[in-house]
Design a protein around this nucleic acid. Structure first.
Lengths: 224, 224
DNA sequence: GCAAAAGTGTTAATGGTACACCCATGA
DNA sequence: TCATGGGTGTACCATTAACACTTTTGC
Protein backbone atom coordinates (compact mmCIF):
# COMPACT_ATOMS: atom_id res chain seq x y z
CA UNK A 1 0.00 0.00 0.00
CA UNK A 2 2.70 2.47 0.95
CA UNK A 3 4.57 0.86 -1.86
CA UNK A 4 1.73 1.41 -4.24
CA UNK A 5 1.34 5.02 -3.27
CA UNK A 6 4.98 5.75 -3.82
CA UNK A 7 4.93 3.98 -7.09
CA UNK A 8 1.98 5.99 -8.13
CA UNK A 9 3.66 9.30 -7.59
CA UNK A 10 6.59 8.06 -9.61
CA UNK A 11 9.11 8.29 -6.80
CA UNK A 12 10.51 5.42 -4.83
CA UNK A 13 13.20 5.84 -2.22
CA UNK A 14 14.99 2.68 -3.25
CA UNK A 15 14.89 2.47 -6.97
CA UNK A 16 16.88 -0.51 -8.18
CA UNK A 17 20.28 -0.17 -9.71
CA UNK A 18 20.27 -0.25 -13.43
CA UNK A 19 22.71 1.01 -15.96
CA UNK A 20 21.39 3.34 -18.56
CA UNK A 21 23.52 3.59 -21.64
CA UNK A 22 23.39 5.35 -24.95
CA UNK A 23 24.44 3.75 -28.21
CA UNK A 24 25.04 5.82 -31.30
CA UNK A 25 24.67 4.82 -34.92
CA UNK A 26 26.99 7.21 -36.75
CA UNK A 27 26.31 7.35 -40.47
CA UNK A 28 28.72 8.82 -42.97
CA UNK A 29 29.38 9.02 -46.68
CA UNK A 30 32.81 7.54 -47.38
CA UNK A 31 34.32 6.52 -50.69
CA UNK A 32 31.02 7.26 -52.41
CA UNK A 33 29.21 4.78 -50.16
CA UNK A 34 26.78 5.19 -47.29
CA UNK A 35 28.49 3.78 -44.22
CA UNK A 36 28.21 3.23 -40.50
CA UNK A 37 30.95 3.51 -37.90
CA UNK A 38 31.53 0.46 -35.71
CA UNK A 39 34.01 -0.27 -32.97
CA UNK A 40 35.54 -3.65 -32.24
CA UNK A 41 35.65 -4.31 -28.54
CA UNK A 42 35.33 -7.07 -26.00
CA UNK A 43 32.34 -6.88 -23.69
CA UNK A 44 31.42 -9.77 -21.43
CA UNK A 45 30.97 -12.89 -23.51
CA UNK A 46 31.23 -10.90 -26.71
CA UNK A 47 34.92 -11.16 -27.50
CA UNK A 48 36.11 -9.16 -30.45
CA UNK A 49 32.66 -8.27 -31.57
CA UNK A 50 31.61 -5.14 -33.36
CA UNK A 51 29.52 -2.64 -31.45
CA UNK A 52 27.97 0.72 -31.95
CA UNK A 53 29.84 3.31 -29.94
CA UNK A 54 28.08 3.35 -26.59
CA UNK A 55 28.51 3.71 -22.85
CA UNK A 56 26.87 4.41 -19.54
CA UNK A 57 25.12 7.58 -18.47
CA UNK A 58 26.11 9.46 -15.31
CA UNK A 59 23.67 11.03 -12.89
CA UNK A 60 24.41 14.57 -13.98
CA UNK A 61 24.07 14.04 -17.69
CA UNK A 62 21.14 14.27 -20.03
CA UNK A 63 20.78 11.54 -22.59
CA UNK A 64 22.30 13.73 -25.26
CA UNK A 65 25.15 14.77 -22.95
CA UNK A 66 25.88 11.13 -22.48
CA UNK A 67 25.85 10.45 -26.19
CA UNK A 68 28.29 13.34 -26.74
CA UNK A 69 30.62 12.08 -24.03
CA UNK A 70 30.54 8.48 -25.12
CA UNK A 71 31.08 9.25 -28.77
CA UNK A 72 34.01 11.50 -27.95
CA UNK A 73 35.52 8.88 -25.66
CA UNK A 74 35.42 6.20 -28.32
CA UNK A 75 36.03 8.12 -31.52
CA UNK A 76 37.23 11.63 -30.76
CA UNK A 77 34.20 13.20 -32.48
CA UNK A 78 32.89 16.43 -30.98
CA UNK A 79 29.85 18.66 -31.38
CA UNK A 80 27.66 16.13 -33.09
CA UNK A 81 23.92 16.47 -33.61
CA UNK A 82 21.91 13.49 -32.40
CA UNK A 83 18.48 12.17 -33.18
CA UNK A 84 16.87 9.74 -30.79
CA UNK A 85 15.80 6.43 -32.28
CA UNK A 86 14.25 4.42 -29.46
CA UNK A 87 14.93 2.76 -26.12
CA UNK A 88 15.60 -0.92 -25.55
CA UNK A 89 14.73 -2.49 -22.22
CA UNK A 90 14.63 -6.25 -22.65
CA UNK A 91 15.79 -8.07 -19.56
CA UNK A 92 18.48 -10.20 -21.15
CA UNK A 93 20.02 -7.90 -23.67
CA UNK A 94 23.27 -7.58 -21.72
CA UNK A 95 25.08 -10.65 -20.37
CA UNK A 96 26.37 -9.12 -17.15
CA UNK A 97 23.54 -7.04 -15.76
CA UNK A 98 20.39 -5.18 -16.59
CA UNK A 99 21.17 -2.47 -19.09
CA UNK A 100 18.68 -0.18 -20.69
CA UNK A 101 19.96 1.64 -23.71
CA UNK A 102 18.74 4.69 -25.54
CA UNK A 103 19.79 4.59 -29.17
CA UNK A 104 20.63 7.69 -31.22
CA UNK A 105 21.80 8.27 -34.72
CA UNK A 106 24.08 10.97 -36.10
CA UNK A 107 25.06 12.07 -39.60
CA UNK A 108 28.59 13.32 -40.05
CA UNK A 109 30.98 14.49 -42.69
CA UNK A 110 33.97 12.19 -42.29
CA UNK A 111 36.30 14.90 -43.63
CA UNK A 112 35.50 17.02 -40.59
CA UNK A 113 35.87 14.20 -38.12
CA UNK A 114 39.04 12.19 -38.41
CA UNK A 115 38.78 8.99 -36.46
CA UNK A 116 40.93 8.73 -33.35
CA UNK A 117 41.65 5.22 -32.18
CA UNK A 118 40.99 5.40 -28.46
CA UNK A 119 41.88 3.23 -25.54
CA UNK A 120 39.93 0.00 -25.22
CA UNK A 121 38.88 0.09 -28.81
CA UNK A 122 40.59 -2.66 -30.76
CA UNK A 123 39.58 -1.27 -34.09
CA UNK A 124 37.22 1.28 -35.50
CA UNK A 125 35.98 1.17 -39.05
CA UNK A 126 33.47 2.56 -41.52
CA UNK A 127 31.33 -0.30 -42.81
CA UNK A 128 29.32 -0.20 -45.95
CA UNK A 129 25.68 -0.48 -44.90
CA UNK A 130 25.27 -3.36 -47.31
CA UNK A 131 28.19 -5.21 -45.86
CA UNK A 132 27.85 -5.12 -42.11
CA UNK A 133 29.85 -7.72 -40.16
CA UNK A 134 28.13 -10.79 -38.80
CA UNK A 135 29.59 -10.69 -35.33
CA UNK A 136 27.74 -7.78 -33.80
CA UNK A 137 27.48 -7.60 -30.03
CA UNK A 138 24.28 -7.51 -27.98
CA UNK A 139 21.24 -6.61 -30.05
CA UNK A 140 23.19 -4.09 -32.08
CA UNK A 141 22.11 -5.60 -35.39
CA UNK A 142 18.60 -4.57 -34.48
CA UNK A 143 19.70 -1.15 -33.28
CA UNK A 144 21.48 -0.51 -36.57
CA UNK A 145 18.46 -1.59 -38.52
CA UNK A 146 16.10 0.56 -36.47
CA UNK A 147 18.41 3.56 -36.67
CA UNK A 148 18.65 3.24 -40.43
CA UNK A 149 14.88 3.03 -40.80
CA UNK A 150 14.34 5.93 -38.45
CA UNK A 151 16.80 8.02 -40.39
CA UNK A 152 15.07 7.22 -43.66
CA UNK A 153 11.75 8.22 -42.14
CA UNK A 154 13.21 11.51 -40.96
CA UNK A 155 14.72 12.22 -44.35
CA UNK A 156 11.80 11.08 -46.46
CA UNK A 157 10.60 13.83 -48.77
CA UNK A 158 13.31 16.11 -47.52
CA UNK A 159 16.47 15.05 -49.31
CA UNK A 160 18.32 16.86 -46.56
CA UNK A 161 21.33 14.67 -46.41
CA UNK A 162 23.75 17.53 -46.64
CA UNK A 163 25.11 16.77 -43.19
CA UNK A 164 26.89 13.88 -44.81
CA UNK A 165 28.54 15.84 -47.60
CA UNK A 166 31.32 18.41 -47.81
CA UNK A 167 30.21 22.03 -47.90
CA UNK A 168 30.32 22.08 -51.68
CA UNK A 169 29.18 19.07 -53.63
CA UNK A 170 27.93 18.11 -57.06
CA UNK A 171 24.41 17.02 -57.77
CA UNK A 172 25.74 13.62 -58.78
CA UNK A 173 27.28 13.21 -55.33
CA UNK A 174 24.04 14.20 -53.66
CA UNK A 175 22.04 11.86 -55.83
CA UNK A 176 24.44 9.00 -55.31
CA UNK A 177 24.26 9.44 -51.55
CA UNK A 178 20.50 9.51 -51.64
CA UNK A 179 20.44 6.37 -53.75
CA UNK A 180 22.79 4.67 -51.33
CA UNK A 181 20.74 5.51 -48.26
CA UNK A 182 17.48 4.32 -49.75
CA UNK A 183 18.89 1.56 -51.94
CA UNK A 184 17.14 2.91 -55.01
CA UNK A 185 17.98 4.22 -58.46
CA UNK A 186 16.75 7.64 -59.55
CA UNK A 187 16.43 9.40 -62.88
CA UNK A 188 18.99 12.19 -63.05
CA UNK A 189 16.69 14.81 -64.57
CA UNK A 190 13.84 14.10 -62.21
CA UNK A 191 16.18 14.27 -59.25
CA UNK A 192 17.48 17.66 -60.34
CA UNK A 193 13.97 18.90 -60.92
CA UNK A 194 12.85 17.88 -57.45
CA UNK A 195 15.85 19.26 -55.62
CA UNK A 196 15.73 22.57 -57.47
CA UNK A 197 12.07 23.17 -56.86
CA UNK A 198 12.71 22.57 -53.16
CA UNK A 199 14.87 25.66 -53.41
CA UNK A 200 17.39 24.52 -50.84
CA UNK A 201 20.56 24.59 -52.93
CA UNK A 202 22.57 27.40 -54.43
CA UNK A 203 25.06 27.12 -57.24
CA UNK A 204 28.53 28.27 -56.20
CA UNK A 205 29.38 28.75 -59.90
CA UNK A 206 32.52 26.80 -59.25
CA UNK A 207 33.16 23.64 -61.18
CA UNK A 208 34.60 20.52 -59.72
CA UNK A 209 37.90 19.68 -61.37
CA UNK A 210 39.52 16.32 -61.85
CA UNK A 211 36.25 14.81 -62.94
CA UNK A 212 34.73 14.51 -66.37
CA UNK A 213 31.84 16.60 -67.45
CA UNK A 214 32.85 19.59 -65.35
CA UNK A 215 29.94 19.54 -62.89
CA UNK A 216 28.95 22.59 -60.87
CA UNK A 217 29.43 22.61 -57.14
CA UNK A 218 26.40 23.44 -54.98
CA UNK A 219 25.89 24.19 -51.34
CA UNK A 220 22.87 24.34 -49.06
CA UNK A 221 21.32 27.78 -48.70
CA UNK A 222 21.71 29.60 -45.41
CA UNK A 223 18.07 29.68 -44.44
CA UNK A 224 16.25 26.48 -45.05
CA UNK B 1 41.47 5.17 -16.30
CA UNK B 2 39.86 2.20 -14.60
CA UNK B 3 36.78 4.36 -14.63
CA UNK B 4 37.12 4.96 -18.31
CA UNK B 5 37.62 1.31 -19.08
CA UNK B 6 34.53 0.27 -17.19
CA UNK B 7 32.51 2.96 -18.82
CA UNK B 8 33.70 1.81 -22.15
CA UNK B 9 32.45 -1.71 -21.67
CA UNK B 10 29.09 -0.34 -20.60
CA UNK B 11 29.15 -1.82 -17.11
CA UNK B 12 29.90 0.00 -13.93
CA UNK B 13 29.69 -1.65 -10.54
CA UNK B 14 28.12 1.37 -8.93
CA UNK B 15 25.70 2.85 -11.36
CA UNK B 16 23.86 5.76 -9.82
CA UNK B 17 20.35 5.57 -8.56
CA UNK B 18 17.82 6.78 -11.01
CA UNK B 19 14.18 6.04 -11.40
CA UNK B 20 13.01 4.90 -14.75
CA UNK B 21 9.34 5.40 -15.39
CA UNK B 22 6.93 4.86 -18.21
CA UNK B 23 4.18 7.30 -19.10
CA UNK B 24 1.34 6.32 -21.38
CA UNK B 25 -0.72 8.51 -23.67
CA UNK B 26 -3.98 6.59 -24.02
CA UNK B 27 -6.05 7.79 -26.96
CA UNK B 28 -9.72 6.99 -27.41
CA UNK B 29 -12.74 8.02 -29.42
CA UNK B 30 -15.44 9.23 -27.05
CA UNK B 31 -18.61 11.15 -27.85
CA UNK B 32 -17.52 11.47 -31.46
CA UNK B 33 -14.33 13.19 -30.44
CA UNK B 34 -10.70 12.12 -30.38
CA UNK B 35 -9.62 12.16 -26.75
CA UNK B 36 -6.80 11.43 -24.34
CA UNK B 37 -7.04 9.96 -20.87
CA UNK B 38 -5.53 12.01 -18.06
CA UNK B 39 -5.34 11.46 -14.32
CA UNK B 40 -5.44 14.17 -11.71
CA UNK B 41 -2.90 13.56 -9.00
CA UNK B 42 -0.53 15.34 -6.69
CA UNK B 43 3.16 14.78 -7.27
CA UNK B 44 5.77 16.86 -5.50
CA UNK B 45 5.12 20.51 -6.20
CA UNK B 46 2.47 19.68 -8.71
CA UNK B 47 -0.67 19.73 -6.59
CA UNK B 48 -3.82 18.66 -8.36
CA UNK B 49 -2.25 18.64 -11.75
CA UNK B 50 -3.18 16.45 -14.66
CA UNK B 51 -0.74 13.74 -15.66
CA UNK B 52 -0.46 10.96 -18.12
CA UNK B 53 -0.81 7.63 -16.36
CA UNK B 54 2.73 6.68 -15.40
CA UNK B 55 4.91 5.04 -12.81
CA UNK B 56 8.26 3.51 -12.02
CA UNK B 57 9.80 0.44 -13.53
CA UNK B 58 11.01 -2.50 -11.44
CA UNK B 59 14.20 -4.42 -12.05
CA UNK B 60 12.45 -7.49 -13.38
CA UNK B 61 10.19 -5.73 -15.86
CA UNK B 62 10.66 -4.81 -19.45
CA UNK B 63 9.54 -1.35 -20.49
CA UNK B 64 6.30 -2.71 -21.89
CA UNK B 65 5.69 -4.84 -18.79
CA UNK B 66 6.00 -1.67 -16.78
CA UNK B 67 3.58 0.21 -18.98
CA UNK B 68 1.05 -2.64 -18.61
CA UNK B 69 1.42 -2.65 -14.84
CA UNK B 70 1.25 1.09 -14.45
CA UNK B 71 -1.75 1.53 -16.68
CA UNK B 72 -3.61 -1.23 -14.88
CA UNK B 73 -2.74 0.27 -11.49
CA UNK B 74 -4.10 3.67 -12.44
CA UNK B 75 -7.02 2.87 -14.72
CA UNK B 76 -7.86 -0.84 -14.55
CA UNK B 77 -7.09 -1.33 -18.25
CA UNK B 78 -5.60 -4.69 -19.22
CA UNK B 79 -4.01 -6.25 -22.30
CA UNK B 80 -3.26 -3.04 -24.09
CA UNK B 81 -0.99 -2.71 -27.10
CA UNK B 82 1.71 -0.06 -26.72
CA UNK B 83 3.85 1.83 -29.16
CA UNK B 84 6.99 3.52 -27.93
CA UNK B 85 7.21 7.24 -28.55
CA UNK B 86 10.51 8.42 -27.11
CA UNK B 87 12.55 8.77 -23.93
CA UNK B 88 12.99 11.94 -21.89
CA UNK B 89 16.08 12.41 -19.80
CA UNK B 90 16.38 16.10 -18.93
CA UNK B 91 17.92 16.67 -15.53
CA UNK B 92 15.20 18.82 -14.03
CA UNK B 93 12.06 17.26 -15.37
CA UNK B 94 11.03 15.89 -11.98
CA UNK B 95 11.07 18.08 -8.85
CA UNK B 96 12.12 15.40 -6.37
CA UNK B 97 14.81 13.40 -8.08
CA UNK B 98 16.26 12.36 -11.37
CA UNK B 99 13.61 10.54 -13.36
CA UNK B 100 13.99 9.26 -16.87
CA UNK B 101 10.75 8.37 -18.54
CA UNK B 102 9.94 6.28 -21.58
CA UNK B 103 6.72 7.43 -23.19
CA UNK B 104 4.29 5.10 -24.95
CA UNK B 105 0.97 5.57 -26.62
CA UNK B 106 -2.00 3.24 -26.83
CA UNK B 107 -5.26 3.25 -28.79
CA UNK B 108 -8.28 1.81 -27.07
CA UNK B 109 -12.00 1.36 -27.52
CA UNK B 110 -13.50 2.99 -24.45
CA UNK B 111 -16.49 0.64 -24.60
CA UNK B 112 -14.15 -2.29 -23.88
CA UNK B 113 -12.31 -0.55 -21.10
CA UNK B 114 -14.46 1.01 -18.43
CA UNK B 115 -12.47 3.40 -16.31
CA UNK B 116 -11.83 2.31 -12.74
CA UNK B 117 -11.01 5.11 -10.35
CA UNK B 118 -8.05 3.79 -8.43
CA UNK B 119 -6.37 4.75 -5.22
CA UNK B 120 -4.31 7.92 -5.31
CA UNK B 121 -6.05 9.14 -8.39
CA UNK B 122 -8.21 12.13 -7.60
CA UNK B 123 -9.94 12.07 -10.91
CA UNK B 124 -9.59 10.45 -14.26
CA UNK B 125 -11.10 11.90 -17.40
CA UNK B 126 -11.18 11.76 -21.17
CA UNK B 127 -10.09 15.14 -22.57
CA UNK B 128 -10.79 16.36 -26.03
CA UNK B 129 -7.43 16.70 -27.75
CA UNK B 130 -8.33 20.24 -28.67
CA UNK B 131 -9.18 21.12 -25.12
CA UNK B 132 -6.42 19.82 -22.92
CA UNK B 133 -6.16 21.35 -19.45
CA UNK B 134 -3.54 23.98 -18.74
CA UNK B 135 -2.24 22.54 -15.51
CA UNK B 136 -0.33 19.54 -16.74
CA UNK B 137 2.39 18.15 -14.52
CA UNK B 138 6.07 17.80 -15.42
CA UNK B 139 6.71 18.01 -19.13
CA UNK B 140 3.57 16.09 -19.94
CA UNK B 141 2.30 18.73 -22.34
CA UNK B 142 5.29 17.92 -24.50
CA UNK B 143 4.81 14.18 -24.07
CA UNK B 144 1.21 14.45 -25.21
CA UNK B 145 2.21 16.47 -28.21
CA UNK B 146 4.98 14.08 -29.17
CA UNK B 147 2.75 11.04 -28.69
CA UNK B 148 0.06 12.58 -30.88
CA UNK B 149 2.55 13.36 -33.63
CA UNK B 150 4.10 9.94 -33.42
CA UNK B 151 0.70 8.32 -33.66
CA UNK B 152 -0.15 10.38 -36.72
CA UNK B 153 3.10 9.33 -38.34
CA UNK B 154 2.37 5.68 -37.64
CA UNK B 155 -1.14 5.95 -39.03
CA UNK B 156 -0.35 8.04 -42.06
CA UNK B 157 -1.50 6.43 -45.27
CA UNK B 158 -3.01 3.57 -43.33
CA UNK B 159 -6.32 4.85 -42.02
CA UNK B 160 -6.10 1.98 -39.56
CA UNK B 161 -7.71 3.67 -36.64
CA UNK B 162 -10.09 0.79 -36.04
CA UNK B 163 -8.59 0.16 -32.64
CA UNK B 164 -10.48 3.22 -31.51
CA UNK B 165 -13.91 2.22 -32.80
CA UNK B 166 -16.51 -0.37 -31.82
CA UNK B 167 -16.46 -3.59 -33.81
CA UNK B 168 -19.11 -2.27 -36.17
CA UNK B 169 -19.08 1.32 -37.28
CA UNK B 170 -20.32 3.57 -40.04
CA UNK B 171 -18.09 5.19 -42.61
CA UNK B 172 -19.09 8.57 -41.23
CA UNK B 173 -17.80 7.57 -37.81
CA UNK B 174 -14.54 6.37 -39.29
CA UNK B 175 -14.15 9.53 -41.32
CA UNK B 176 -15.00 11.75 -38.39
CA UNK B 177 -12.41 10.02 -36.24
CA UNK B 178 -9.80 10.39 -38.91
CA UNK B 179 -10.64 14.07 -39.31
CA UNK B 180 -10.40 14.52 -35.55
CA UNK B 181 -6.99 12.89 -35.27
CA UNK B 182 -5.46 14.86 -38.10
CA UNK B 183 -7.47 18.06 -37.68
CA UNK B 184 -8.50 18.07 -41.31
CA UNK B 185 -11.66 17.98 -43.39
CA UNK B 186 -12.10 15.30 -46.03
CA UNK B 187 -14.45 14.90 -48.96
CA UNK B 188 -16.91 12.11 -48.23
CA UNK B 189 -16.75 10.48 -51.65
CA UNK B 190 -12.98 10.56 -51.87
CA UNK B 191 -12.70 9.11 -48.40
CA UNK B 192 -15.02 6.22 -49.28
CA UNK B 193 -13.13 5.61 -52.50
CA UNK B 194 -9.81 5.45 -50.70
CA UNK B 195 -10.96 3.20 -47.90
CA UNK B 196 -12.75 0.80 -50.24
CA UNK B 197 -9.84 0.36 -52.56
CA UNK B 198 -7.69 -0.45 -49.56
CA UNK B 199 -9.98 -3.44 -49.21
CA UNK B 200 -9.80 -3.53 -45.43
CA UNK B 201 -13.49 -3.17 -44.61
CA UNK B 202 -16.47 -5.45 -45.06
CA UNK B 203 -20.09 -4.44 -45.06
CA UNK B 204 -22.09 -6.20 -42.35
CA UNK B 205 -25.30 -5.42 -44.31
CA UNK B 206 -26.75 -4.13 -41.06
CA UNK B 207 -27.92 -0.56 -40.86
CA UNK B 208 -27.34 1.68 -37.92
CA UNK B 209 -30.65 2.74 -36.39
CA UNK B 210 -31.48 5.86 -34.48
CA UNK B 211 -29.60 7.99 -36.96
CA UNK B 212 -30.73 9.69 -40.13
CA UNK B 213 -29.80 8.43 -43.53
CA UNK B 214 -29.70 4.77 -42.48
CA UNK B 215 -25.96 4.18 -42.90
CA UNK B 216 -24.48 0.70 -43.25
CA UNK B 217 -22.30 -0.72 -40.52
CA UNK B 218 -18.86 -1.94 -41.50
CA UNK B 219 -16.15 -3.91 -39.75
CA UNK B 220 -12.48 -4.55 -40.44
CA UNK B 221 -11.76 -7.72 -42.39
CA UNK B 222 -10.16 -10.62 -40.58
CA UNK B 223 -6.90 -10.66 -42.51
CA UNK B 224 -5.43 -7.31 -43.14
C1' DG C 1 -43.33 16.18 -45.40
C1' DC C 2 -39.19 18.03 -44.21
C1' DA C 3 -34.62 18.27 -42.55
C1' DA C 4 -30.34 15.73 -42.32
C1' DA C 5 -27.25 12.48 -43.53
C1' DA C 6 -26.01 8.51 -46.81
C1' DG C 7 -24.90 7.01 -51.05
C1' DT C 8 -22.96 7.49 -55.75
C1' DG C 9 -19.29 9.09 -60.81
C1' DT C 10 -17.06 12.24 -63.50
C1' DT C 11 -13.86 15.83 -64.56
C1' DA C 12 -9.86 18.76 -63.77
C1' DA C 13 -5.45 19.44 -61.85
C1' DT C 14 -1.48 18.02 -60.05
C1' DG C 15 2.58 15.46 -59.43
C1' DG C 16 5.52 11.68 -60.84
C1' DT C 17 7.74 8.84 -64.26
C1' DA C 18 9.92 7.81 -68.54
C1' DC C 19 12.83 9.11 -71.97
C1' DA C 20 17.17 11.20 -75.83
C1' DC C 21 20.24 14.48 -77.29
C1' DC C 22 24.01 17.88 -77.04
C1' DC C 23 27.92 19.83 -74.32
C1' DA C 24 32.05 19.94 -71.30
C1' DT C 25 35.93 17.79 -69.57
C1' DG C 26 39.80 14.47 -68.63
C1' DA C 27 42.54 11.14 -70.45
C1' DT D 1 39.67 12.45 -80.48
C1' DC D 2 37.20 9.80 -77.80
C1' DA D 3 35.01 8.14 -73.81
C1' DT D 4 32.58 9.59 -69.79
C1' DG D 5 29.61 12.09 -67.23
C1' DG D 6 26.92 16.75 -66.97
C1' DG D 7 23.27 19.40 -68.35
C1' DT D 8 18.53 20.18 -70.25
C1' DG D 9 12.70 19.69 -71.71
C1' DT D 10 8.61 17.26 -73.01
C1' DA D 11 4.93 13.84 -73.24
C1' DC D 12 2.44 10.49 -70.82
C1' DC D 13 0.53 8.30 -66.92
C1' DA D 14 -1.30 7.91 -62.20
C1' DT D 15 -2.95 9.84 -58.29
C1' DT D 16 -5.48 13.22 -55.93
C1' DA D 17 -8.88 16.95 -55.43
C1' DA D 18 -13.15 19.15 -56.63
C1' DC D 19 -17.83 18.93 -57.20
C1' DA D 20 -24.04 17.97 -57.25
C1' DC D 21 -27.86 15.28 -57.15
C1' DT D 22 -30.85 11.39 -55.52
C1' DT D 23 -32.23 8.21 -51.72
C1' DT D 24 -33.04 6.93 -47.04
C1' DT D 25 -34.31 7.77 -42.48
C1' DG D 26 -35.77 10.18 -38.00
C1' DC D 27 -38.57 13.50 -36.25
Amino acid sequence: MEQEKLQHIQVKPNSFECSITTDIAVFGYVEDRFKILLTKRTVGDFKNHWFLPGGVMESNETLVDCAQKVLFALTGFKDIHFEQVRTYGDLERHPLKRVITVCFYALIKPENHPIALKENVESIEWFDMENIPENLGFDHARLINDAHMHMKDNLKDKLIVGELLPEKFTLAELQNLYENIFSIKLDRRNFRKRIFQMDILENTNEKKTGVKGGPFLYRYKENR
